[in-house]
Write a protein that binds this DNA or RNA. Structure first.
Lengths: 149, 149
DNA sequence: CGCATATCAGGGCAACTGACATCG
DNA sequence: CCGATGTCAGTTTCCCTGATATGC
């Protein structure tokens, strides 16, 4: 008669299940500090800050986000003046998205919260284990395309 | 001038972001083989198969699922005769959920698909690395409550 | 013409909130 | 009375599909 039943081994050792749990856990920890949309905003702002102006399609391909999703995020960021959006004169189908000063400020704030969440999340791991985990996840993700197919 | 821009380092080394990517990647790979609800079904069936009959509340606490969510999953499984649901005579608030023979059959099928997805997912890792990843994720998850707060 | 880009409308899953009746 | 359980209704986020207009 088990006193404290644990998650069945079948699930505990399944990365797809672990990934889901870890994702909702991350979302929960982030949600305590910020509204949930901040995560998408953060991803886009980080990309623009580090790689410079991009089109929406490029952003989507890079981050594994849907075109529609990118559109929504960019619209939201634009309404807060954290990015600017103008049609590319060289290819008038494209929107060139550029981060603004306000966007960089927001990004800096979000970065601090992200670091705090990371610390909470990995509290049970040593420095070395945390680095291993990040590296292994990076390796797995690098092996798969960001976009559906 | 970078020819092939990669995901910014800020994101690449953020476990909360990696977790989200890995979760959608897993969901994508699973979705190629099965309808998406199969994941929730699998979790519940695995628990019932390994730990025996449980109440819906216990299932939720164990798996980190919402009460409402558990209700929906159990209703779906019941409609396919893969579990049975009856009120606990000892505590008539509770529903005792029990796996059926059909449920075990379904579970066996799902287990094979899950293993195949795991192999696809971790294709870039060696045996040793895969074990390390599973163990590290397990350690992180064990450090946090399955339920919100 | 085919193809890419951006946009809009909408579906589906999962997490969550709040409310409610029942029962211990 | 309080707390736990199951149920119902509804919100939000994100991933995805399909359709459309525009431009290369």
């Amino acid at each position: 008669v088990p006193a404290e039943p644990r998650v069945p081994a079948t699930l505990r050792q399944l990365v797809s299940w672990q990934a889901g749990r870890l994702a909702t856990l991350s979302s929960r920890l982030t949600g305590r500090r910020l509204p949930l949309e901040a995560r998408s905003d953060f991803a886009v702002l980080a990309t623009l800050d580090e790689l410079g102006p991009s089109s929406q399609a490029d952003l989507g391909r890079l981050l594994g986000l849907d075109r529609n999703n990118v559109n929504g995020i960019v619209t939201r960021l634009e309404s807060h003046a954290q990015i600017s959006r103008r049609t590319d004169p060289a290819d008038r189908r494209r929107n060139v998205v550029t981060i603004t000063a306000a966007g960089r400020e927001r990004f800096a704030v979000l970065q601090q919260h992200a670091a705090a969440v990371q610390a909470e999340l990995l509290g049970a791991l040593s420095e070395q284990e945390a680095e291993q985990l990040v590296a292994l996840l990076e390796k797995v993700l690098a092996d798969h395309p960001a976009q559906p197919a």
